[in-house]
Design a protein around this nucleic acid. Structure first.
Lengths: 321, 321
DNA sequence: GTACTTATGCTCATATCTAGCATAAGCCGG
DNA sequence: CCGGCTTATGCTAGATATGAGCATAAGTAC
């Protein structure tokens, strides 16, 4: 229980904590970052080394006195741990449930960050394939192979319950995985992950409850603590946000083709888009302009290069959720 | 920086109430609630008494050991301070900037809550008129009287700056207040409040900086600390959310007419809606059903009474942002 | 030059949103 | 009982956005 166990504040709490708890508790505040980028291999997430059971973890650290703002604290920790400076940063969610009775409470404030380029430019940092942690979220080449098995596993879990619970579970499964009639809603990433967790189909569930995982389907590479839940929250938020805010450009280089843009939109949302429509949408919004140059890297007809016009957007960073 | 261990949150708990990080940081975690309801007089927000300069404050209190979850902590504090039990609760944002050098850091987790009925049923609690704090946000009867003067005040503030800053300020004003061409976007509540704060046009700005407020326009009743900012965040989120989630029903009685529903939607969003279109939208979504009864309270033709069908929605509470 | 690849532009059908108008069905004062 | 008032309810035309397919342009590889 020593230094090796990274976020084990909970276990280290001394008795004084509980004794005086009625006064308002001893609370540790942690900052976590889901840093997303994109390279030739696809969407990536930045991971730091961790101790806990060897599972990789998000970059994170405690809130410190020098941090003028929470956001500054996140930037500082990520850069210290991975060398990666952050561009766009936005608060995601604050997690603070009491983990186990008798353990010390820990509040974790999770952030989403987007950076340009990943392994290409900064191979030192620990970039991982985003979809390695959520294989069932990638529908770019049609329904993932694991999805049928996954549904069966979930079905079994629903069957195990009493009729009341069972109906509720079936409804939630249908809503999250788009079963009857409804179609796949790519934004419900967290809903899906939570179902899998409750159903005991992800490794974290087995770890936290000390029982074996009975999943036959591939439910992805686990992360330390509740970091995969944070990642799910981040992906869901990002998938929703790219539809109404120009966040995509935070991932793009200075110059790009419309198809580059589309590839990234598809990679993040996990679904294929109709090319002419995507192009029309982008051009109609007035957020980009031609640079006048062409890209000959296409393999076919050269594509016009565009640049983002940040003047258009004057969103204030941070809490504009 | 003795500890290089990236995730060394393992700091000793040393005081009864707060954590001393080795950098000397102590953190208190507070919970705040923006509780919104609706009565005959319009939209209301629940306020608790406060000490600070006599300004009213949101119900709030420190996170305690008994609170199993953050949300449970919020419910507990609101009920303790105002007697009001909460229904729908959703996390809003976590504020944690260092207020003044030398002061202890405080992290505040703000929640949005919706309850049915306000002064009607529970006159003891401190319900205040929501738009008393944001008079310029109520466009139900056309542009508020203060808006022209407000724009002039903001204009003056922009003029005061150097040309670079000035352009930025003008752009932000135009974006937030919908000046040239753009029309009023009712969701940008926080953006507007922050502009007014920066421009020194709200009482909190004068209070925090110790200088006089030069506003000629009515910029609303101030709240303690940064509570009006939280309220602005809540209103913005709520205005956005009623468009794509059935949150409106959290404010409604069991039975209501379509026009009742519309009045509340208008009260929250601060703009008038087209009656036939609102009605069509509500009826097409399948979220409500007729009870078979009629309301004769209309003053004209009696209106059909409806009830909400919660079976339809199986949103998980909490983090489904 | 021919085959292949990707970019780009256009059109049509379908949903959704906006706005105005017409009718229904209660109340009220005579 | 009647006309005038109020509010509820229903319909429809036009504008705008979305979804999907097809035709053409302009490079590369052989």
């Amino acid at each position: 229980m020593g230094e090796r166990n990274p976020m084990s504040m909970a276990e280290r709490a001394d008795g004084a904590v509980e004794l005086h708890a009625h006064q308002g508790q001893t609370v540790g505040v942690g900052l976590n970052a889901v840093v997303v980028a994109f390279d030739d291999a696809g969407p990536r997430v930045l991971l730091a080394n961790s101790g806990e059971e060897g599972m990789p973890a998000l970059p994170s650290g405690p809130l410190e006195a020098e941090h003028r703002t929470l956001e500054a604290g996140v930037r500082s920790w990520v850069e210290r741990q991975t060398g990666q400076p952050l561009g766009f940063v936005e608060q995601l969610y604050t997690f603070g449930d009491k983990s186990r009775p008798g353990t010390r409470r820990f509040v974790s404030i999770a952030y989403l960050a987007l950076v340009r380029g990943a392994a290409d430019e900064r191979p030192a940092a620990g970039w991982a394939d985003l979809y390695a942690h959520f294989p069932y979220e990638d529908w770019r080449d049609g329904a993932p192979g694991s999805i049928a098995l996954l549904r069966e596993d979930l079905q079994d879990w629903a069957e195990d319950a009493g009729s009341g619970t069972k109906r509720g579970r079936l409804a939630r499964i249908a809503s999250a995985f788009g079963e009857d009639g409804q179609r796949w809603n790519e934004e419900r990433v967290l809903e899906r992950y939570e179902l899998l967790y409750e159903a005991g189909l992800v490794a974290e569930a087995g770890r936290d409850r000390g029982c074996a995982v009975r999943a036959r389907a591939d439910t992805g590479v686990p992360l330390a603590l509740d970091h995969r839940r944070m990642l799910a929250t981040a992906i869901g938020r990002l998938r929703a946000k790219i539809k109404y805010r120009p966040v995509l450009f935070e991932l793009m280089p200075d110059e790009f083709t419309l198809f580059d843009l589309q590839r990234i939109a598809e990679a993040l949302s996990g679904v294929r888009l109709h090319k002419p429509n995507f192009r029309r949408l982008m051009e109609s919004q007035g957020l980009i302009e031609e640079t006048g140059r062409l890209s000959t890297q296409t393999g076919g007809r050269p594509a016009k290069l565009f640049r983002y016009r940040p003047e258009i957007t004057m969103e204030r960073p941070g809490e504009t959720a």
